[in-house]
């Protein structure tokens, strides 16, 4: 066992608390940087996809793991982000702005969802979010002038200025950059009053209130931030899949996102993420249900069920 001698309180609010951590995370980053030179385009694409889902996972983790609000409808935000981004791009808005507006838009919808969601908890909340996502799916199917309805929608290629980011390597780095910044912001939230307020709301609403925490505000912020992250993931996902259809963002995806968070352990960032993502990555190859158009969509249900059986403590309390 090694002992870390702390000399000031400043050390405790750092993300890397000692040199060992800094060293290992730098190594990880170097490895991630070297992948484009080592791996084929196919695996780079898969890695980018993992990064995208990890961003969505951060969003859901903040809401479900840290604030204790279960959402069975997060695919809706993925869809909102993807469609908004594709739509703004098609209007000729540059990539960076379009993505930012999509994130804000997704956040706004998240804030609106918070209004009914504030009144209910537990299973009622799960179903309210589920209902919300089904409504969103229907809107995406029928708002033909914007979304193309069931015909779907082509996503313009990403570019900054005149530089195309279409290549697998460029897209990989973009996703990596967004994932790193999302993780950083996620960790910032957790070491700030807003993140602590979230955990307080999760563990005891009554006592959070007596500590001066505004429940409605905290939950609304949690919804907004969570929807923002998931919207960002949606925007990136739009480029990854290239072609949007309303049923790409259905209940199965919501459940999958939730499982990703739950299997990884709802209260831990970083490592468990990677673990849940690795699971996410390999599950399709173990699964027998492979007829879906995209094989990420349906990993083997048995594997998931077993995961939760083995490690029930990783689930949030309802």
């Amino acid at each position: 066992m090694r002992f870390i001698r702390k000399t000031n309180y400043y050390q405790d609010i750092q993300i890397f608390k000692h040199e060992g951590q800094t060293f290992w995370y730098t190594c990880l980053l170097l490895i991630l940087f070297s992948f484009p030179f080592l791996l084929s385009d196919f695996y780079l694409g898969e890695l980018a996809l993992i990064f995208i889902y990890a961003i969505a996972g951060i969003g859901l983790m903040l809401l479900t793991g840290y604030t204790g609000l279960v959402s069975l409808g997060h695919a809706a935000f993925l869809g909102i982000g993807a469609y908004a981004h594709a739509y703004f791009l098609s209007l000729g808005i540059p990539f960076v702005f379009s993505l930012s507006i999509s994130v804000l838009f997704s956040s706004l919808i998240g804030t609106l969802l918070a209004i009914p969601a504030l009144r209910v908890t537990g299973i009622y909340l799960a179903v309210a979010t589920l209902a919300f996502s089904i409504i969103v799916e229907q809107i995406l199917s029928h708002w033909v002038s914007v979304t193309g309805g069931y015909r779907g929608m082509l996503v313009p290629d990403p570019s900054i200025g005149n530089v195309s980011l279409k290549s697998h390597t460029a897209f990989y780095f973009i996703c990596l950059a967004f994932l790193s910044s999302s993780l950083l912001i996620g960790l910032n939230i957790l070491r700030s009053p807003v993140g602590r307020a979230m955990t307080a709301v999760r563990d005891s609403e009554i006592s959070a209130q007596s500590m001066g925490i505004n429940l409605a505000r905290t939950k609304t912020i949690a919804f907004a931030i969570s929807a923002g992250f998931t919207g960002l993931a949606g925007g990136l996902l739009a480029h990854k899949i290239g072609y949007l259809a309303p049923d790409s963002f259905n209940l199965l995806i919501s459940i999958q996102l939730l499982l990703m968070v739950v299997v990884g352990g709802t209260r831990v960032f970083t490592w468990s993420y990677l673990r849940s993502n690795i699971h996410w990555f390999f599950a399709p190859s173990l699964g027998f249900v492979k007829r879906q158009p995209s094989r990420k969509i349906c990993p083997n249900p048995r594997i998931r069920t077993r995961y939760i059986w083995i490690n029930p403590g990783s689930s949030p309390d309802l």
């Binding site: 955990t199 563990d203 005891s204 009554i206 006592s207 007596s210």
Partner: peptide, 12 residues
């Protein structure tokens, strides 16, 4: 205030 059977944030 405090509570009779404690209402702490248990997972923290």
């Amino acid at each position: 205030r405090t509570f009779q059977n404690t209402e702490l944030f248990e997972h923290e």
